[in-house]
């Protein structure tokens, strides 16, 4: 697989390590009343779709950036990638 790094272009997936579902960016609020149950779901449950999946990859043998990669889990086709920091910052702005 080649990952379309937003800054560095096509890079071999071997340069990356994999974390999983991009929803791991959405950490629950620790002070919410249902925090314990929310954290249990956050840590253990995954959507795991067959098809388009947004997931976190870390460019370890590279620029050490976290990417949100959109990939088809049935064909392994990489459909796009963006810097996870931009994704996270955009969400923070939305929630404010």
């Amino acid at each position: 697989m080649l990952i379309t790094h937003p800054l560095l272009g096509l890079r071999d997936a071997q340069e990356f390590t994999y974390l999983g579902d991009a929803r791991l960016i959405d950490r629950p609020a620790p002070s919410a009343p249902d925090a314990e149950a929310a954290f249990c779901d956050y840590v253990f449950l995954r959507d795991n779709p067959a098809g388009v999946h947004r997931e976190l990859w870390y460019h370890e043998h590279g620029d050490r950036s976290w990417l949100v990669v959109t990939r088809d889990t049935v064909t392994h086709e990489v459909l796009g990638a963006e810097l996870a920091r931009n994704v996270a910052l955009a969400r923070t702005r939305c929630s404010k």
């Binding site: 999983g20 579902d21 253990f44 449950l45 795991n48 779709p49 889990t73």
Partner: peptide, 18 residues
């Protein structure tokens, strides 16, 4: 292998990745 897909039809999310 497909547990998540099948159980999703019953509205469940599982502690599993394929």
């Amino acid at each position: 292998g497909s547990s998540s897909r099948v159980m999703a039809m019953a509205g469940m999310r599982l502690p599993i990745e394929s």
